[in-house]
Design a protein around this nucleic acid. Structure first.
Length: 285
DNA sequence: CTACCATCCTGGTTGC
DNA sequence: TGCAACCAGGATGGTA
């Protein structure tokens, strides 16, 4: 679901209602999602004041004053954070079936962690030990960070016989991409999703890094992509889905080939590692 | 290592 | 209209 741009959008949406605020009430309405919630999470959260809210890959980290522990949130496939209250929305509305965690702040906001498919998670991790934590230890570089460069990507792909599409979905290679943005980035870079990862040379790696950075930045700028579940915490829709060149567009004309290359039969779909890949066979080699 | 598959869940869409 | 099959943004663990 939510890939890096959507998580980043959620993070930015939570800052105005959570950062600097004290949690007055926390309600955990089931034992857990993908993994169990920490024992006593409601009591742990109650009375704490939120410091910084940051992001690593597709994980959001909510820090608190006077403790090294941070609340780690992963939205899985269908997770959302919904803010009501502060903007005038009705606090009396009963929680819905998939509202699993509810936070209320001293600013009058209520924040719902809603996750229909329950692939998300919420747990506590010590910030100082985060890099050694099993959830984070193996993660590759942040795609929008300074450490993600052509040579770095080329190195990380070296020796891999898996297709580049699958390699980019591997969070150990680069952290934060999902199915949509991998498809879009490969299209922009003109690289076939079937190409073996090891066959991405320096030049292609450079192009790919630029394409990944561009597509992620543009998507964040647009508030992410709203397919099915994703909305900003305020309820607003992201609109980057209107800018997809290939994702979900099987049979549609390729935006760059259309009318120019006679051989282009439009966007095609294939399945790699059980996931749909969308691409233009004419443009991506 | 690698590729492939199933699994955790619910809900929306598609096709008969 | 009803119902079943299929599909979905993720991550992981098992198997060959």
């Amino acid at each position: 679901m939510p890939e890096l741009p959507e998580v980043e959008t959620v993070r930015r949406g939570l800052i105005p209602v959570l950062q600097g605020r004290r949690i007055l009430r926390a309600e955990v309405r089931r034992k857990g999602l993908r993994i169990p919630f920490p024992e006593g999470l409601e009591d742990w959260l109650t009375g704490r004041r939120v410091s910084a809210i940051t992001r690593r890959a597709k994980y959001m980290l909510v820090g608190f004053e006077a403790t090294d522990e941070a609340l780690v949130v992963h939205l899985g496939m269908s997770g959302r954070m919904v803010v009501t209250g502060a903007g005038g929305a009705n606090l009396e509305v009963a929680p819905g079936l998939h509202d699993h965690v509810i936070l209320e702040t001293d600013g009058g906001a209520r924040i719902l962690f809603n996750d229909a498919r329950r692939f998300g998670m919420m747990t506590l991790v010590k910030r100082t030990e985060i890099d050694a934590h099993p959830l984070f230890a193996g993660l590759g570089p942040e795609p929008l960070g300074p450490a993600f460069t052509g040579p770095v990507l080329a190195d990380r792909l070296a020796g891999k016989i898996t297709p580049i599409k699958s390699a980019l979905l591997d969070q150990r290679v680069v952290a934060g991409l999902g199915n949509i943005y991998v498809c879009e980035a490969l299209y922009r870079a003109g690289i076939s999703p079937r190409r073996k990862a090891a066959n991405i040379g320096r030049r292609r790696a450079e192009r790919l890094v630029r394409a990944i950075q561009a597509v992620l930045s543009e998507a964040i700028e647009a508030g992410g992509s709203s397919l099915r579940d994703h909305r900003q915490p305020s309820g607003e829709l992201g609109y980057f889905q209107h800018n997809f060149a290939v994702y979900g567009r099987e049979g549609a004309p390729c935006p760059r080939c259309a009318g120019q290359r006679s051989g282009c039969a439009g966007i095609r779909r294939l399945v790699q590692g059980g996931r749909s890949t969308f691409y233009c066979p004419e443009l991506q080699r």
